[in-house]
Amino acid sequence: MATSLKLPPQLKSRVVTAAKGAGKSPHAFMVEAIEQQVAQVERRQRFIEEALAAEREALETGKGFNADEVHEAMAARAQGGRTQRLKARPWRK
């Protein structure tokens, strides 16, 4: 699919300079930049969808994880330690 992209002169000049610095044609540089931006938006959307699904699951089951335990486990793993698998527990009263 052919698409025409009108760039302001200053931006076009910056793209040409950046593309040369990256060893790419301006066209290849712009295609890559658009692909990266689309991928970022798609990742963000998946993250939001997963977070909303997790929230629905927590509200439906009434179970969740203790934040302090999660933080401790993450810190231990970041330092190369091993941790026990955390279990969701009821939080509703």
Results as ranks from 00 to 15, higher is better:
85 R>K: 15
35 E>C: 07
91 W>K: 08
33 A>R: 15
25 S>E: 03
42 E>L: 14
31 V>R: 14
87 K>Y: 04
45 Q>N: 12
75 A>S: 04
20 K>F: 07
75 A>I: 04
44 R>Q: 06
5 L>Y: 07
76 A>Q: 04
84 Q>H: 01
74 M>C: 08
44 R>T: 12
9 P>N: 08
31 V>E: 12
93 K>H: 07
79 Q>E: 01
20 K>G: 11
63 K>W: 00
44 R>W: 05
11 L>N: 01
21 G>D: 00
15 V>E: 05
65 F>V: 08
47 F>H: 14
3 T>N: 04
63 K>Q: 12
20 K>S: 03
26 P>S: 08
5 L>V: 15
27 H>A: 12
67 A>R: 15
64 G>E: 01
91 W>M: 09
78 A>Q: 14
21 G>I: 01
8 P>K: 15
17 T>S: 02
12 K>Y: 06
55 E>Y: 11
63 K>E: 11
81 G>A: 07
49 E>P: 00
30 M>T: 10
63 K>M: 07
75 A>H: 06
46 R>D: 03
12 K>A: 04
20 K>H: 14
67 A>I: 06
52 L>K: 12
57 E>Q: 14
56 R>E: 15
52 L>R: 15
57 E>C: 04
80 G>C: 05
81 G>T: 03
40 Q>L: 13
63 K>T: 01
74 M>I: 07
85 R>D: 13
72 E>Y: 00
72 E>P: 00
28 A>M: 14
90 P>R: 14
17 T>H: 01
15 V>Y: 01
62 G>M: 08
44 R>A: 08
61 T>L: 06
73 A>K: 06
70 V>C: 05
24 K>Q: 15
34 I>S: 01
60 E>G: 03
73 A>N: 05
72 E>K: 12
19 A>V: 12
92 R>C: 07
53 A>L: 11
17 T>E: 05
83 T>R: 00
83 T>Y: 00
19 A>Q: 07
82 R>S: 14
41 V>I: 15
65 F>E: 03
28 A>V: 15
21 G>W: 00
39 A>F: 03
49 E>S: 02
89 R>T: 10
35 E>W: 05
5 L>I: 15
74 M>H: 09
82 R>N: 12
24 K>A: 13
18 A>M: 13
57 E>I: 14
52 L>W: 13
82 R>F: 00
2 A>Y: 07
33 A>Y: 01
55 E>V: 08
80 G>A: 04
65 F>Y: 15
35 E>S: 06
54 A>H: 10
90 P>I: 07
21 G>H: 00
51 A>P: 00
27 H>W: 02
27 H>D: 10
39 A>I: 05
88 A>L: 09
31 V>D: 04
64 G>C: 06
8 P>V: 15
26 P>G: 08
18 A>C: 10
39 A>G: 02
50 E>H: 09
69 E>M: 06
73 A>M: 10
93 K>I: 11
80 G>E: 04
